Amino acid sequence: MAHIDYYLGTISPWCYLAGDRLERIAQEHGATITYKPLDLMQLFPRTGGQTPGERHQSRKDYRMQELARWRDRLGVEMTLQPAHFPVNMAPSSYAIIAAQQDGSGDTGGLVQGFLRAVWAEDRDISDDAVIREILTAAGFDPAIADKGLFAGAEQYGRNLEDAVAAGVFGAPFYVVRDSGQTFWGQDRLDFLAEHLAAG
């Protein structure tokens, strides 16, 4: 059985555009997923990149065009300039880590809930009340937000180190542990599916 490490940022528009395709691909091919939220703003400079705010204006302009194109291509609701962006990714990431360890709800749905809150609902995912609502909607005890705080913080830091060691430099980034194959971007999910199908 193949296993996929999914490196993500809870405010990444590209992770939002991925939707639930990874989960559907994994189900189809009998693969498992470990969700590994991390601090993208630390990842970029450590792997030769720049944070979005530091990039040249031409890259910022192109990014906005591409987001609009993919929004329209995928037919998803998306606010290109959300009310709460960027915000601190740590609290929502801690919640995902704690929820995954708990295992009582839908972790994929939780990840998508946070991303949808930013990009389609204009909600602040660094706000404790919002985090609790999204946990509840995904079938988790909202108290996880408090109980998993310490363990979540530790794992969040480890996820960044794991990402750098695995060659991750952006998000979404998918690493197939068994083969060592890596896939960067929501537009590479078809390649991931083909790789899993090939066994």
Rank of each mutant, 00 (worst) to 15 (best):
C15H: 11
C15I: 10
C15D: 14
Y16R: 02
A18G: 14
A18T: 03
G19R: 11
G19D: 14
G19N: 09
D20W: 09
D20V: 15
D20A: 15
R21S: 15
R21E: 15
L22H: 04
L22S: 02
L22N: 01
L22T: 02
E23Y: 07
E23G: 06
E23C: 06
E23P: 02
E23I: 07
R24S: 14
R24A: 15
R24N: 13
R24K: 15
I25P: 00
I25N: 00
I25S: 00
I25F: 01
A26S: 10
A26F: 04
Q27L: 05
Q27A: 07
Q27W: 08
Q27F: 04
E28L: 07
E28F: 02
E28Y: 01
E28R: 09
E28V: 02
H29V: 07
G30M: 03
G30Q: 04
A31S: 02
T32L: 03
T32N: 01
T32A: 05
I33K: 01
I33D: 04
I33Y: 06
I33P: 03
I33N: 06
T34H: 05
Y35V: 04
Y35P: 00
K36H: 08
P37W: 00
L38F: 03
L38R: 00
L38H: 00
D39R: 11
D39I: 10
L40I: 14
L40R: 01
L40W: 01
M41Q: 15
M41C: 13
Q42C: 13
Q42A: 15
F44T: 02
F44M: 10
F44C: 01
P45I: 02
P45H: 05
P45Q: 06
P45G: 02
R46W: 13
R46L: 14
R46M: 14
R46S: 14
T47L: 10
T47H: 08
T47V: 12
G49M: 06
G49V: 05
Q50K: 11
Q50R: 10
T51V: 08
T51E: 05
T51A: 07
P52R: 04
P52Q: 05
G53E: 08
G53A: 08
E54D: 15
E54W: 12
R55F: 13
R55Y: 14
H56L: 15
Q57P: 13
Q57F: 13
Q57C: 11
Q57T: 14
Q57N: 12
R59S: 05
R59T: 06
R59M: 05
R59Y: 03
K60S: 08
K60I: 10
K60E: 06
D61W: 08
D61C: 08
D61T: 10
D61Y: 07
Y62H: 12
Y62C: 03
R63I: 13
R63S: 11
M64I: 11
Q65R: 14
Q65G: 12
E66D: 14
E66K: 09
E66P: 08
L67C: 09
L67G: 05
A68M: 10
A68N: 11
W70H: 13
W70I: 10
R71D: 09
D72C: 05
D72I: 05
R73S: 14
R73F: 14
L74M: 12
L74Y: 11
